[in-house]
Amino acid sequence: MSEEDPTRRTVIKVGAAVAAVATAAPALPDVAEAKAAVTDTARISLKVNGVTHRQELEARVTLLDALRERIGLTGTKKGCDRGECGACTVLVDGRRIKSCLTLAVMQQGREITTVEGLARGDALHPVQAAFIRNDGFQCGFCTPGQLMSAVACVHEGHTGSDDEIREWMSGNLCRCGCYPNIVASVRQAAKEMS
């Protein structure tokens, strides 16, 4: 993240959020509205799974809540809302992030990929297929986050060994206890994606 990029913390700290956001969000109307509060809305557009969604949002709305409550993409889950569980993991410009820890207004102009964007029609992504084949989930609630992390884990090249997969998949909690099957899923997907 570059130095100009606002983080959720700086945005909240500033309070007059729009000012901070504007540096990364050229689509916002005017920096003159800098005195606006987090409760003021802005018209933004988010590109999710290749589709542009225009929304009028308060600055304080997280990417997670924008996806779930506004855009209607409920595949991404909220498990803790504070970056501890990983259920809300999505890809932004190919990089895995926790969507509860970023604001929607900070993600304009970026390519956001959610679990709904992995398959091509009826053809599952290799990671999705591998999770089914290896029973990499039980309740399925952490699964969207695990899948997005797994895609990134493979692309990052962190699948050299089972221990490496374990380490790089440890930001996504699974309470049903599927970790060995998740490791097997990522291992298999990595092989198929190479």
Binding site: V115, Q128, F131, R133, D135, G140, T143
Partner: peptide, 21 residues
């Protein structure tokens, strides 16, 4: 047998309580 709800769970189509429309 693979879970019959597997595809719904890996595509985000499975709607949990908070996902109800």
């Amino acid at each position: 047998v693979s879970r019959v709800d597997g595809v719904a769970k890996v595509t985000g189509a499975a709607r949990y309580a908070a996902d109800a429309e």
